[in-house]
Design a protein around this nucleic acid. Structure first.
Lengths: 252, 252
DNA sequence: CCTTGCGCTTGACGCGACGTCAACCTCTAC
DNA sequence: GTAGAGGTTGACGTCGCGTCAAGCGCAAGG
């Protein structure tokens, strides 16, 4: 009892292209070929196809399936390895979903804030006291003038970037990476560059903030509870500090 | 202040190949090129890169990122759409993980059973009563002889296929597909073919089980509590019955 | 002056599992 | 004779780059 490729395809719920693909890669050669190269499948081939489809349904890559079916690999082993892959992937997606959700709420909060008083924005005047106290009223005045000069559009854009940076930090914290890892250091670089873009910050004229300023700010982050909620709790804010300090020591 | 491609790559924690790719697809053209086509990036380009990387980190495809950055798409909209994609993908992975876990335990249970009395295997003699009662002692005898003739290896393989079929059914139930969908019907086809492979079943000589046998068996599945746990509870077993009946009416 | 080596360039293939034409063949029915 | 159904092989596209391969410009060392 042999069947044509379309019959098999309909029976198994796959496309004929898939069957020809499986033939091409040697996973499921037809049991025979007729006039003009037509492929014919007997019930042995169909049973092999059904095992292939089950394993494919479980997400195994085709070459793994080939290994399992040709007895070169233990099925239970292959499935266990695959389960690891699935779990990691799922974890990645969970973290990514959470990141996107945080970013969305941040953006929405940002647009709310935008409708209110601009000067209550995140990093700018919220830190007025610290800025004037540590770096002088002059620095604050320059920073404030720059902020006003941005205009509504520029301020909104700046806020967006600020929220993005926060979201990136909390995402990195959530992934549990090391503060000295390339990833965290890249974030620290972005953070420093972001700081350096504000004319009031010491060293901004040279294009990058001064080492002392960055380290001082980083320490202030852990000392001030208001920052903890911006960077994902105590764990998050110490992570940010460690990354920033490491970066400042190395690059500034 | 312009930087070379390597400087930017290190700063941002990506490869230079990535930057050239972004240039190629028009996502991030360098701010200028020098002698021999060398790419130079100013701080505007670097900030654009940083926004790109943040959005990429959130899992957005590059063309979506381009749309967002070039203001052709609303950022919040894009993220919300993306969040849908992420959630669906995560759900798929969760179901897949669960399927693999069920299959693994089924396989392990199968190997345990194999070590015990073979004749206590799932579908064979467990149904002895029903088989003899409905289809006669003759059918049972032929089925039994076939089973013994399989030998230890063949019996083990048969059990594996049986467990796989069960796992596929419960997976389909978990995904909530329709009993008349192509997917469920393909499973029903596999189920019928599996039944037809046992010489004792009516119609097996013709290569496929008889319509009445399949429907009768399907109804028996919902009537007998022992089947419910094999196919994922009451919901599962009625699903299996519906799919099998629909298939038998159409194809047998 | 020549070589070595670094950093950069463009160009191209590879991955995974097929979808989707395109161009052609074979058989049947009208 | 011709249209149509169902098959064939061949090749490109997907997505985000990694990874050669071959070559160019420039600086240091022989």
């Amino acid at each position: 009892m042999t069947s044509s490729i379309q019959d098999v395809a309909r029976l198994a719920g796959v496309s004929s292209r898939t069957l020809r693909h499986y033939d091409q890669i040697g996973l499921l050669p037809p049991s025979g070929t007729g006039h003009g190269g037509l492929r014919y499948y007997d019930d042995v081939a169909i049973r092999r196809l059904q095992r292939i489809l089950l394993l494919r349904e479980l997400g195994l890559p085709l070459d793994e399936i080939a290994g399992v079916l040709d007895e070169q690999t233990d099925e239970v082993d292959a499935l266990r390895r695959h389960l690891d892959v699935l779990r990691r992937e799922r974890g990645r997606l969970e973290r990514q979903t959470a990141s996107v959700e945080r970013t969305l709420t941040a953006l929405e909060k940002g647009t709310e804030l935008m409708a209110e008083d601009m000067l209550d924005g995140f990093d700018h005047t919220q830190h007025k006291d610290e800025v004037t106290e540590r770096w002088g009223a002059d620095a604050y005045a320059r920073s404030d003038a720059w902020w006003r000069g941005l205009g509504a559009q520029g301020q909104a854009e700046w806020k967006t970037r600020t929220e993005e940076l926060n979201a990136a930090w909390t995402a990195a914290v959530g992934r549990g990476v090391d503060p000295t890892s390339d990833e965290a250091q890249a974030l620290a670089a972005r953070h420093a560059e972001w700081l350096g873009a504000v004319p009031g910050t010491p060293g901004a004229d040279a294009g990058r903030p001064s080492k002392e300023y960055v380290i001082g700010l980083a320490e202030m982050y852990v000392a001030d509870a208001r920052f903890a909620k911006n960077y994902g709790g105590n764990e998050g804010v110490t992570f940010v500090r460690d990354a920033l300090v490491a970066y400042a020591e190395r690059e500034l």
